[in-house]
Amino acid sequence: MVMTAVRQDVTAADPPSAPPPAAARRRARRRTYLWSYVYLAPMMVLLLAFVVYPIMASLGYTFYKWDGIGDPSEFVGLANFRQIVNDSIFWRSLGHTFVYAAFVVPIQLVLALALALVLNNKRLRFASFYRTLFFLPVVTSAAVIGVVIQLLVSNFGDSINTLLLNLHLIHQHIDWLGDPHFAMAIIILVGIWHTFGYNLVYFLAGLQTIPDELYEAARLDGAGRIAMFRYITIPMLRAVGVVIVILAVIGTFQIFDLVQVLTSGGPFFATEVVNTYIYHLAFGGSNANAVQPDIGLASAASFIYGLLLIGFSIVQVLVLRSLARRRGAS
């Protein structure tokens, strides 16, 4: 008993272990940062090789008239930029791009939020199956979807026309992808369906971060579903919603393969968007306004389009932040 008490007293009297010196802490932090950079290195290499370098190289090509064969040697200065700015087809394709975004983004976001509210219900059976089902179009290539839609329209277009004629909704047969009035509408509908799953998953992730206690407290206070959606769901989704809107707008401005496969920008430039316009300038095509492929002209168009998108993105972020501040102040 005496020996045990003595050991306890000695143990209690031992001074606490000294904290590691500052140099050791700095070395530990450096090791942590070093491994972080090691993990990021492959992605940075790929980003520099396939994004940054092509952008810088294409900026140099804007000052040359070059068909992509050999080295560029015909220096034209700012002539490519002047030609793009004075080209009505460029501004027309830019307008089509904004029209596509103006329809796709709001319709897609509203539908995605509504479906996310349904799928977020914990009492819904087979919710995981439905989520997978709605996300499947995203993992399918837009080019493959364009080919399938083209085949469907060509094979069943006459049947649809016959049905609409019998219902007296139309007075003559419609060439769905060959009519300037309907081709863009079909591209918009397919675009809404194709990328719908992205926004659905984003909204589901945002809804699952809202604590259930808020809804339970609101129910105890007698709040209905509309009131809970207005005063709980919308405010809690505001930060996530800003990111979703920005990503949705950027995604719609990248539309290319769906248009290229379905209509190639036709008929009569009715569905030409900026990305297909640039493609036709660079590699030629039936809708290109350059007789021969011109990489320099296409690079100038890409540079102008990039500047416009950067400006639009800045304005979009500033407007969304201003709206958020006003709502927070009220």
Rank of each mutant, 00 (worst) to 15 (best):
residue 133 L to E: 05
residue 264 S to G: 13
residue 166 N to W: 15
residue 39 Y to D: 09
residue 97 T to I: 07
residue 94 L to K: 04
residue 316 Q to P: 00
residue 257 D to V: 09
residue 123 R to M: 09
residue 168 H to C: 03
residue 290 A to W: 03
residue 53 Y to F: 15
residue 323 L to F: 05
residue 239 A to N: 10
residue 104 V to P: 01
residue 219 R to Q: 12
residue 102 A to G: 13
residue 5 A to W: 08
residue 216 E to A: 08
residue 278 I to C: 06
residue 218 A to W: 04
residue 18 A to E: 13
residue 164 L to K: 05
residue 289 N to K: 07
residue 173 H to L: 10
residue 316 Q to E: 15
residue 236 M to N: 09
residue 228 M to D: 07
residue 311 G to V: 04
residue 65 K to Q: 15
residue 278 I to P: 01
residue 264 S to H: 10
residue 132 T to P: 00
residue 283 F to L: 13
residue 58 S to I: 00
residue 170 I to H: 05
residue 145 I to D: 01
residue 242 V to D: 02
residue 312 F to G: 08
residue 280 H to L: 02
residue 49 A to N: 04
residue 264 S to Y: 03
residue 60 G to Y: 07
residue 19 P to F: 08
residue 12 A to Y: 09
residue 104 V to M: 05
residue 250 I to P: 03
residue 157 G to V: 03
residue 284 G to E: 06
residue 208 Q to A: 10
residue 262 L to E: 03
residue 116 A to W: 01
residue 40 L to I: 08
residue 268 F to L: 09
residue 296 G to Q: 01
residue 210 I to L: 14
residue 182 F to D: 02
residue 220 L to D: 06
residue 158 D to K: 05
residue 97 T to K: 05
residue 191 G to P: 00
residue 251 G to N: 14
residue 282 A to V: 04
residue 97 T to L: 12
